[in-house]
Write a protein that binds this DNA or RNA. Structure first.
Lengths: 214, 214
DNA sequence: AAAAATACCGATTACGCGGTAGGTTTAACA
DNA sequence: TGTTAAACCTACCGCGTAATCGGTATTTTT
């Protein structure tokens, strides 16, 4: 009816989404999301086949559509779920800048154990740069939000006198994001050929040495 | 008949590719390559329409096929051309490491003036991470080659005593490539919001300060 | 001027795609 | 236990796709 698939809810949090039942259904949803992530990771969103995702979980195409009315809805469901997970990582605005940088290294470390997920989001991230891509808004918001979060923490470090005052917090935030994303792409092309964690850790260590005061 | 479109020539350089004639034809080829780059930049390779490229240069689909027998041939032609251009940038293996890093900054600087080209290759680079992508080999070779070139130059710097001996040249090469590619993606998402050149230059300056001896 | 390659086009084909129409079976709940 | 929604399926549709067939007109070379 609406064609946008945005009709889930708007701001409710614990509100049970209308009425929902079957345990089997929830299990299926989970399977579908997993399968879709796999196929998006392999082929990208545009090139992946909605019907092939259905097949992977043993459904017909209309069977899949019963759960996700359009391909876009399925994509958005994957992104939405990622939102919930990633809140906790950069969560506190009360984190010290050193702790934040450590947390970033840990994120990279953790990512090496879930190459599938990393691949999915790296592919979608890049693909979302193309015209009218349905994930463009999500990735745009995400980069804005992460960037803001990083630069605020760095800025607090500057104001508290722990970081050299001539550092550009916003530029440094962009630099960190770029390095992480760039490394991911290199790593995805040849996971065994480069040690993503070691490289990123070395980079961050140098960065800390460069900007720390005292 | 061969279906691969690889039948142009194999190693000849000045050898006129069999026999070629019309000036009009060469002009058309040029238009086609430009149009294709534009559309690949907008929509990616997979999602771009071969026929739409034909239309943009005022040809029917069979008319386009006269010049490039398949869509893959067109893609490879674009990549091939880029090869010729990019040789000169990192050309000499007799370049000093400082000169090389300066050259990288200049490349980034120059790239800000050709966002279309940057976009094309950034999009294709990311897209080539998907399964069976026709550009995968090209980008794989490219990253290998650039990486090797960078790390060799850095290694020479180490051996000549200009760079600290505890530096990992290969890791640093990967880091540089990651930073450039990551920055490009961030920049493409919001060209006016970030100063790619300033960020990269600041990064390189810190890097030099960190690894230089004496 | 003759021969031959180049530079195209209209019509068509085979196929995969996302999505719909209209149903039947299965399971939850009162 | 009856009602109702969830959980699916078969068959189908319209569309866009890359690519082919079989030409004709133009240009270049001999």
């Amino acid at each position: 009816m609406d064609g946008t698939g945005q009709n889930r809810q708007k701001a409710g949090q614990a509100a049970p989404p209308k009425r929902r039942k079957s345990p089997k259904g929830e299990e299926r949803r989970e399977q579908i999301l997993q399968a879709a992530m796999r196929q998006f990771a392999d082929d990208g969103y545009q090139n992946a086949s909605f019907a092939a995702i259905a097949q992977e979980v043993g459904l017909s195409l209309p069977g899949l559509i019963h759960y996700f009315p359009t391909k876009v809805d399925l994509l958005l469901a994957i992104l939405e779920r990622r939102d919930l997970e990633s809140v906790k990582v950069l969560g506190g605005p009360d984190l010290s800048w050193r702790a934040l940088l450590s947390a970033l290294v840990e994120v990279v470390q953790a990512n090496t154990h879930i190459p599938g997920v990393v691949r999915t989001f790296a592919i979608l991230n890049a693909e979302s740069l193309t015209r009218d891509h349905p994930a463009a808004g999500w990735f745009g918001n995400r980069v804005r939000s992460v960037s803001l979060s990083l630069s605020q923490t760095l800025q607090r470090g500057i104001e508290s006198g722990e970081i050299r005052p001539d550092v550009d917090a916003r530029a440094l935030a962009a630099e960190l994001i770029s390095m992480m994303d760039g490394l991911q792409m290199l790593w995805l092309r040849a996971p065994d050929a480069i040690d993503m964690v070691a490289i990123f850790r070395a980079y961050v260590d140098r960065l800390i040495a460069d900007i720390a005061l005292g």
